[in-house]
């Protein structure tokens, strides 16, 4: 729903590690952007900067055309772990994401979302009584109850089994279709990236940079078994291979949009 632009962002940590070097990317309104790349290439750092949980050392991040500082009411997030507040009920946790709503509105949306994530009747339970997949669904509902313009997800499904993961993909896409937030999802799973994303940003490490961006160009709903899907997956994997071999070479002069170079 909201345009996101990351402009020439670099990040040095206090210990001198450069996690990001001149990263630029953008996500159009309602677009789903997947970010893939080897471990340590700065994906989490990038999301934390966008979320406003940490500050960039250089560059700017613009939300809806406005440069932002700190957290932003239209940006919400799903973390790798559910990170539910153990002392709140399931309904309380979902409602926590909608703190800016009027109570009646918040309760109504909580109730609707509980049904949507398949946990109707679980509202009064405590997080400790839910399975990992159920907890992650609650955390997705918490992130969406406030109808965010931008939704950030950092490897949200990596701890889950393939069945749960597939059902959560469908859940996420369903909710996305309703609310159309702009989505940035970090993942290790190429299939997940191709299944969900309009564009796949491949990053490479030391320091973290955008290597290239692949556009799967598949219509929705996507069929994981179709040859087109396979082809798109292969393109992403080849891009990852290139990003890894580039590690040992000096950075290329040509900027990010590598997909046109190869296809």
């Amino acid at each position: 729903m909201t345009h996101l632009a990351v402009q020439h962002v670099s990040k040095f940590y206090a210990n001198g590690t450069q996690a990001l070097a001149d990263v630029s990317l953008h996500a159009g309104e309602g677009e789903i952007l997947a970010v893939v790349g080897s471990s340590g290439c700065g994906k989490t750092t990038l999301l934390r900067l966008i979320a406003g949980l940490d500050q960039s050392s250089a560059g700017a991040i613009a939300v809806g055309g406005q440069v932002m500082h700190g957290t932003h009411p239209t940006i919400s997030a799903v973390f790798q772990e559910p990170r539910l507040l153990a002392w709140l009920t399931v309904a309380g946790n979902i409602g926590f994401g909608g703190r800016r709503l009027k109570p009646a509105e918040r309760d109504a949306r909580t109730e609707a979302l509980l049904g949507r994530i398949g946990l109707a009747g679980y509202g009064k339970r405590l997080p400790k009584d839910l399975s990992g997949g159920q907890q992650q669904r609650v955390s997705i509902a918490r992130a969406l109850i406030g109808h965010p313009g931008i939704l950030l997800l950092d490897e949200p499904f990596s701890a889950l089994d393939p069945f749960t993961r597939a059902s959560l993909h469908d859940l996420l896409l369903g909710l996305w279709q309703e609310l159309k937030p702009t989505v940035v999802i970090v993942t290790h799973d190429v299939e997940e990236a191709v299944f969900l994303a309009d564009r796949v940003v491949v990053m490479r490490p030391r320091p973290g940079r955008v290597s290239e961006t692949i556009t799967p160009r598949l219509s929705r709903p996507r069929d994981k078994l179709s040859p087109l899907f396979d082809a798109a997956k292969r393109r992403v994997m080849q891009a990852i291979d290139r990003s890894l071999s580039e590690e040992h070479r000096p950075p290329p002069r040509q900027a990010a949009d590598g997909s046109s170079l190869w296809w």
């Binding site: 009411p73 973390f79 990170r83 507040l85 926590f96 406030g146």
Partner: peptide, 23 residues
């Protein structure tokens, strides 16, 4: 990590004390 949840969902410093730290 829980403090970050509070910050992402817009808690003020005082809100963080009340809604995250104290519980």
């Amino acid at each position: 990590k829980l403090m970050e949840v509070g910050r992402v969902f817009g808690l003020s410093p005082f809100g963080l004390v009340l809604r995250i730290i104290l519980p």
